[in-house]
Design a protein around this nucleic acid. Structure first.
Lengths: 139, 139
DNA sequence: AATATAATGCAACTATGTTGCAAAATATTT
DNA sequence: AAATATTTTGCAACATAGTTGCATTATATT
């Protein structure tokens, strides 16, 4: 596991540091998206807040994770699929937030719909955010 | 104009105060969505930050405005259509943010698409956020 | 092992948003 | 129209989210 994480960092020409290993591993272990606060907590407060922010920034730049616009007021981060590269995200899937357990899922296999815009408008990116109950909580 | 705003407040059994009049009027004059910071600035800093926050909260509760999840980290507020009432928003339209002028449009006549979710998932609300160039900037 | 490069932690700062409470303004009653 | 009851406001204080500069430390390179 750690080796796999290691080689991901190498592949993206990122130096290997404890914080990057821990945070990237955390993403690979989690099913949903993570906020800065959750990452801080789940890494046991062993890293400085600023370090976590900067690690997340670097990961976004390298195309390892992407941000999700959230109704709460904190940026959500989630793992990108493998075809995302530096400066070129394939972020055309929809996101689902469970009202009960608050998990945010990337539904990678469901692509965003094409929506016709009024005259003159040019679309560049579409974000779909669905809310409701996830499969676990809907029972 | 002020009379119309006045009667909207009365209709929603809200007492008439300078801040409510000014903020509601500002929404009716604006084409797009507004953030707290913009409202504070456009009302000439004559109202306390807290007053603006509370006014926005009340307007949301009464169904006069709705919030829009934003990629930036600040809540966007926009006027509701007339069929929105207290506790019952009809917020099923899509939103468009212009990359250039940063205006957020409510495209009221474009309804959110129906998207099939994986087994077990139950949808309650769908937010669509499109980004690109608006009709004004796309020239 | 020595050097160059990059990342970290700390302090300080900005922005956003919330809560409690006394003072002031609005609405209601007489 | 004045007095009372009810809301709303502004202030202070606080909480959370996020950024920047800089010296120290760790990683990578030679």
């Amino acid at each position: 596991m750690t080796d796999a994480i290691n080689s991901i960092l190498k592949k993206n020409s990122l130096s290997i540091t404890p914080s990057r290993l821990a945070i990237l591993q955390l993403f690979h272990q989690s099913s949903g998206a993570l906020t800065h606060a959750v990452i801080e907590q789940k890494t046991g407060d062993q890293f400085d807040r600023v370090t976590i922010y900067r690690t997340l920034q670097v990961f976004v730049e390298k195309g390892l994770i992407h941000t999700i616009p959230s109704p709460d007021n904190a940026i959500l981060y989630a793992l990108c699929k493998e075809d995302c590269t530096k400066g070129h995200h394939h972020d055309n899937h929809i996101h689902f937030i469970c009202d009960k357990c608050n998990t945010t899922y990337c539904l990678d296999h469901i692509t965003t719909p094409n929506i016709a815009l009024p005259k003159g408008f040019k679309n560049k990116q579409t974000d779909v955010l669905m809310k409701g109950l996830c499969a676990h909580c809907n029972q």
